[in-house]
Simulated scan of single mutants.
Amino acid sequence: METTTNKKGRLPLKEAWRLHKEKYLLIMPFAIIFVIFNLVPVLVAMGLSFTSFNMLEAPDFVGLANYIELLARDEVFLIAVKNTLLLAFITGPISYIMCFIFAWLINELPPKPRAILTLIFYAPSISGNVYLIWKLIFSSDMYGFANAWLMKLGLIDSPILWFENADYILPILIVVQLWLSLGVSFLAFIAGLQTVDKSLYEAGAMDGIKNRWQELWHITLPSMKPQLMFGAVMQITNSLSVSAISIELAGFPSVDYAGHTILTHLHDYGNVRFEMGYASAIATVLFFVMLIANIIVQKMLRRVGD
């Protein structure tokens, strides 16, 4: 039986179901879970962002009042935006490049060393005691590793109060975030490098590719575009959603809000004050910031290999 397509070259819904119903049935459980637990909450949050809602009384429609308050009058939110963007612009690109470089180097090793090093590099991102380690390093007394070594080297005379001084908080958070960044993106790059067709390198050599850098740009990266896209999405999401690191290390709220981020601001209004309408406005702003950042990065990655 012949199939017909519409003007855009797509199959009508009934025809697509007839040809691919087994595939649709297989993905249906995930699609239902995604809609219920992801899509619906996002839409509900967008709706609540136009209301005043304290979880005890019915939502009261206030229009754009939450957004006006958030963007024009909330000085702490502006500090949070500044801190979040600094974290994102510094840790996002650096951690993305680090993930790829480490994955590229480790991929050149034999299978057993590759598996061991992959585990070593990935372990910090899933470690449950990661904050305890950094608290010990930057403890504000002479027993903290950083203070102990600096005093031993004669660089300081008395312990530095790392998390009581606003000047040190954000740089420390950047270091910790970079240390934790070799996570899912790193594994995706390892997997992507494993799937590159080796015959492409032989064909490239015959077409004039002379060194590893040309191989990387014209063969490896174009062959890994799905993994590069996925890694970019994960890194953008991670760099714009820093919260637990700040709360665990710098406290909540941090000194002079030096470690305050958009997500900790959301935590404040959603989990502490229970002003859910205002918290939903914060979440909606963060959602669109992530969406715009992803669109820009994906457009840039489409040019890889051109």
Score class of each variant (00 low, 15 high):
W179H: 08
H260L: 07
D207F: 11
V272L: 14
G192I: 01
D256M: 13
S243H: 15
P226A: 13
E248F: 12
M229P: 03
S243C: 13
Q177R: 15
H265S: 14
L249C: 08
I169Y: 08
L221F: 05
I172N: 02
A203W: 01
W213E: 04
P222S: 14
M206D: 04
L173A: 13
G270L: 12
H260C: 12
N211V: 04
Y257T: 07
N271I: 14
N271M: 14
G208Y: 07
D207R: 14
V233C: 10
G251V: 13
S246L: 11
I219P: 00
S243D: 14
S185T: 14
L180V: 09
A188Y: 12
Q235F: 05
D197Y: 03
Y269P: 00
L170N: 01
E202P: 02
E202L: 02
I209V: 06
V255Y: 05
I262S: 02
L170K: 01
V196Q: 02
Q214C: 08
A250I: 06
S181N: 09
L193P: 00
L240W: 10
M224K: 00
L240P: 01
G208T: 12
H267N: 13
V233D: 04
H260R: 12
I190T: 02
G208W: 07
P226E: 15
S241M: 06
P253W: 07
A250T: 05
W217H: 03
Q194P: 07
L221D: 01
I262P: 00
E215T: 05
Y257R: 12
S241K: 15
M234V: 07
S181C: 08
A232L: 03
A232W: 01
G183E: 06
I209C: 02
S239F: 09
I169G: 02
E248G: 07
P226N: 13
F189C: 10
